[in-house]
Design a protein around this nucleic acid. Structure first.
Lengths: 215, 215
DNA sequence: CGGATTTATTCATCACGGACGAATTCTACG
DNA sequence: CGTAGAATTCGTCCGTGATGAATAAATCCG
């Protein structure tokens, strides 16, 4: 291409409009959702021509991806939380972490928007699915001892997914209005049960006839 | 309007195209999802004019609603399952019912499609939310004794929602490929814990310092 | 039968949304 | 200066859902 870093032509002299587009897009996508946002309105609000958006971001999806580039990868955060500390306290710490990130007015909405659009976009959905499998399920599975680790991780993930779905996607009552402590109190035991098994200090008790581990 | 049941004009003499539209729409919506389906393509495949769809169903959403008129209301089914039988077996029965309905190749897909579109459509979302609150959460809450019934129902609902999300929406591994029995084995205890509390036959054990009921 | 009335169906068109290519301006380098 | 390359705009295409006017068909009433 061009030898040495020398670049000709118009280098950023009046360089704001790309950022402006990104700002507007971010806000709009979070406020109104993917479908409701029109590129024309974004362009208008950003004070530029419609075609500039295509120029910079290629397509509406491109803009969406760029606008919602997640500041901190939630999977990574979760991984850190999971791996430092005692296994016994993982459930509570995970719930608190999830609540912290998703309740936060700045980190939460992008995640919610991302999740929503992952639901109806095939490609995005696959992406999320793989990320969750790799970063969450597998990591949790690697943490617990038994050979039913996979199933335990699955149950754990399902409960967390349930929390996210009810509290942030459907905004179901009473889950939405519960305090962090309430949520921990309600779901903590479930997660502990999923991860570690029936309350450890007591002998196994089977209220029904079905054995649980069954190797 | 017209006195006595007498109706003039063209009554259904050659009346298939409405049904044809409905058939095509149903299949397409389930296969490709709401947004990917175009009214024009439906009209073409049904062998009629685009405007007929508006004529019969008013709008795309109208068509969607009519096409996916859920054969059996899942909430009602669930309610029946919940209310007949012992409280202790509710968790397993609910899981089995959910799996039966959502895994079924005829009743499942409409539910999934409905849920997906509820995610990005404000109005539909509200509908689902209210239905779930009224038909599931409240009903469950009415079933358990304590005064933390609400929270228990919330936890219960969250786990069920998690199952549905991971298995049918995200299609997450390993949840997707688990057998019904596996799922019951994995999630049953969680639900029992949510509903009924720590395994009944044993003395209360509090691994952490936090009391659960706390009136 | 024959008009009246209603239903079923089509045609033409609108407004809007996303994408794209050609043309134009601007800026920095040489 | 001149020119290359980046930034920006204009005009336009095509597909979408919606809607109203016009036409064909079926049914009823006298």
């Amino acid at each position: 291409m061009n030898k040495s870093g020398s670049q000709r032509g118009r280098r950023p002299g009046s360089p704001d409009t790309r950022a402006a587009i990104l700002d507007v897009a971010r806000r709009r996508f979070l406020e109104d959702g993917y479908h409701a946002v029109t590129l024309r309105s974004v362009a208008a609000e950003a004070g530029c021509d419609l075609a500039l958006i295509s120029y910079y971001f290629g397509s509406k999806k491109g803009l969406f991806g760029a606008a919602l580039a997640l500041g901190a990868n939630p999977a990574e955060l979760l991984a850190r939380v999971v791996e430092q500390g005692d296994l016994a306290t993982v459930p509570e710490r995970v719930v608190r972490q999830v609540l912290a990130v998703w309740d936060d007015p700045v980190t939460g909405p992008p995640l919610i928007a991302m999740l929503k659009s992952a639901v109806d976009d095939e490609a995005l959905g696959a992406l999320v699915k793989e990320a969750v499998e790799r970063e969450i399920v597998d990591r949790i599975a690697g943490l617990v001892p038994g050979r039913d680790a996979g199933h335990r991780a699955a149950a754990f993930t399902a409960v967390v997914a349930g929390l996210i779905t009810t509290r942030y996607l459907l905004r179901l009552e009473p889950v939405v209005s519960m305090s962090s402590d309430d949520v921990v109190r309600s779901l903590g035991p479930q997660l502990r049960l999923a991860l570690i098994g029936p309350a450890r200090p007591v002998r196994r008790v089977r209220p029904e006839g079905r054995p649980v581990p069954r190797p």
